[in-house]
Design a protein around this nucleic acid. Structure first.
Lengths: 261, 261
DNA sequence: CCTTTCAGTTAGTTA
DNA sequence: TAACTAAGTGAAAGG
């Protein structure tokens, strides 16, 4: 391998590319081809793509992507775990096939001409962290209950409520009333109101105390307003950024604590 | 441009890559970088990705993809239409930023080292055709009503039924009864049965004639069986391949007709 | 292996 | 532009 486990072919012949693909599979490397191709797919549905200049990616785990020059999504693809083969057709085209069992589907790419091809043995042990999920929002609320309202005290979270599901956070407000908190990472719609309403109603049948319900989300959608008012529920806007900050502060504090020891 | 509008840099310096990215944007080209990088994202959520070897794709339409060596999905990305910039950091890293307005989000990729980089001015006017969609199934049923049952006669399609939506195909069976056809490209579940049930019930309140309902799909899921029986509805399996063939035959016939003239 | 649910969903369509 | 819906959805979690 010349450099960093990367092999680069400028204006390769089609047979060189066929070999590169085979090499890539054998060495569990990432293979990239850029050139003029057409694509056939057959499986859950069928598709054809007439010739044009595209990017083909073959990953070590057996996933395949065909990207046009535009758009987030690949025009054709194959999920991880499929069997890949390459060969020259009698006409001298480069043919790459990626087959999958369950469900049975086949992707075939025919390259008329490859502008360049590469093989890279990539190592990626990096850690990916995503903030903020609804779970993170809950952590933030438990760490800083003031996010809900001053003097709110969480008592339990994800408490099962009969067969009506789980409530996000249950606690007490400053007056000792039950307060059910429904968390939404995205702008809350009627569904969130109905869900909260179910939790609140279920709880009301079980306890002999006032039960309030509040939605915490970055925003509430217009259509949810009448429902919210009708059900006597409340809403408070909380930004994801705010939650993220609370989590970051806590993380940093942990690091600080660790450094002190 | 050396070859096919493709420029290829083997083991480039980071400043060369920064320039390549700028060139790519200016010339509306596809830019690819393979190397060791870390990634930050902030917008609808936030994420971090610690260093590792990955593939960066910058498309002419302003979409960006960061691919790890595994998986169908990019680990980080930016949809089309964002503003891209590249520069060297004081530490000599290559920094690529992709910013988007509505919603406001930013993707930043820091390359420690680039193994290779490429710029390709791709032209892709290819035509993409996907078979079989539900629309194709409908076409197939209208072309060959026997798919539903012998002597079925379509009368109208996508007929509005009160406020309960649209029905896929409405027609009459051999005995002159109404027959509502619900098409599903994938195995039909309870949702399909309920939908069909709504259409059939809505129609029954309006007409003084027997109304049958049938689901056409590649298969029906186990959980849908009791619902189907309970609602007195029917199911017939029809393969996508069969639909596809009917459409192909019709297409070919059209071509033949054209060639005759 | 199948079902359910979620996604920084994306993408297309329509009001 | 915003709301709605489908996707060859993919991916993760649970049975």
């Amino acid at each position: 391998m010349p450099y960093h486990g990367t092999k680069l072919l400028d204006a390769p012949r089609n047979d060189e590319c066929a070999k590169l693909i085979e090499d890539g599979i054998r060495t569990r490397s990432l293979v990239i081809l850029v050139g003029n191709c057409r694509v056939d797919y057959d499986g859950r549905a069928s598709s054809t793509l007439t010739p044009g200049e595209r990017l083909l990616i073959i990953k070590p785990d057996g996933s395949v992507l065909v990207h046009r020059p535009t758009g987030y999504e690949p025009v054709n693809w194959q999920p991880p775990g499929c069997l890949i083969a390459s060969a020259l057709t009698p006409e001298g085209e480069l043919r790459m096939t990626a087959k999958r069992i369950t469900p049975r589907e086949t992707l075939t790419v025919y390259f008329n001409e490859v502008y360049y091809a590469s093989l890279s043995a990539l190592e990626d042990a990096g850690e990916f962290n995503l903030y903020v999920t609804e779970s993170d929002m809950k952590k933030a609320v438990l760490l800083k209950p003031d996010l809900v309202e001053t003097n709110f005290t969480p008592r339990s979270s994800e408490r099962p409520v009969g067969d009506s599901g789980f409530m996000d956070v249950l606690g007490e407000d400053g007056d000792g009333n039950f307060l059910v908190v429904e968390l939404k990472r995205t702008p809350a719609g009627p569904d969130a109101v109905l869900q909260l309403s179910r939790y609140v109603n279920a709880l009301r049948t079980k306890v002999n105390k006032k039960v309030r319900g509040i939605i915490l989300a970055p925003a509430i959608r217009r259509e949810a307003h009448p429902l919210l008012a009708g059900a006597g529920l409340e809403f408070k806007a909380v930004s994801l950024r705010r939650c993220s900050e609370i989590l970051r502060v806590t993380r940093d504090r942990k690091v600080t604590d660790f450094m002190k020891t």
